[in-house]
Deep mutational scan, measured.
Amino acid sequence: LEELEQFAKTFKQRRIKLGFTQGDVGLAMGKLYGNDFSQTTISRFEALNLSFKNMCKLKPLLEKWLNDAE
């Protein structure tokens, strides 16, 4: 859980630094990986307001997006 919290915090900082909005991330993930995510979902991930199971599902996809974006 602590690792997920740290990743969510780091993800948000890096996303902002790269100049992407939460909506941008959701759209890009849909185009790149075929998984559409709403701005709300990205927001809830960053705020740790998703279930643990959903957080765990999203984390590898967001890590991949972040690596591709950088």
Rank of each mutant, 00 (worst) to 15 (best):
W65Q: 01
L50T: 07
T41M: 10
A8Y: 00
I42Y: 01
S51T: 10
L32G: 06
L50I: 05
R44G: 13
C56A: 13
E5W: 07
L18E: 02
K64F: 04
G26Y: 09
E2W: 09
N49H: 07
F11S: 03
L1F: 13
L61R: 13
L27P: 03
I42R: 00
K9S: 10
I16C: 02
C56P: 01
T41W: 06
Q6V: 07
I16F: 05
A8R: 04
Q6T: 14
K31H: 13
D24R: 04
Y33M: 05
I16W: 03
L27D: 05
K64S: 14
L50C: 13
C56R: 09
D24N: 06
G26R: 06
D36W: 11
F7A: 02
S43E: 12
Q13S: 12
E46M: 00
Q6E: 15
L50K: 01
F37M: 12
Q22P: 13
N49L: 10
E2H: 04
L58D: 02
K53D: 10
M55W: 03
G23F: 12
T41D: 11
T10V: 08
F45D: 00
R44K: 09
K17S: 13
R15W: 00
K17V: 08
G19S: 03
L48C: 13
A47C: 15
N54F: 11
S38N: 10
K59Y: 07
A28F: 05
L32H: 12
R44C: 08
L61S: 07
G23T: 12
M29T: 04
T21V: 02
F11Y: 03
A47H: 05
Q39C: 09
F11N: 00
E5N: 08
G23D: 14
K53L: 13
T40Q: 14
V25A: 08
T40G: 10
G34C: 11
I42C: 02
T10E: 15
D24C: 04
N35E: 14
G26F: 06
K64Q: 12
G30C: 13
A8N: 01
G26T: 09
L61D: 07
L32K: 15
E46C: 01
F37R: 02
A28V: 08
F45N: 00
Q22F: 05
E46R: 01
L58A: 08
N54E: 10
D36K: 10
G26E: 11
E70R: 02
S51M: 02
F45M: 05
F37S: 05
R15Q: 01
L32P: 03
L61K: 10
K57V: 11
L32M: 06
L58H: 09
A69T: 12
K31S: 07
G23Y: 10
S51K: 11
F45I: 02
A8Q: 03
S38A: 09
E2L: 10
C56I: 11
L66I: 11
K17W: 09
K57M: 07
M55I: 06
N49G: 13
Q13I: 05
G34E: 12
D36A: 08
F52M: 11
K12L: 04
R14W: 03
S38R: 08
E3Q: 07
W65K: 00
N35P: 10
G30D: 06
F7L: 03
E2T: 04
T10N: 13
T10A: 09
G34W: 03
L18S: 06
K59V: 08
T41N: 10
P60A: 07
K64L: 07
F20D: 01
W65E: 01
Y33T: 08
D68R: 11
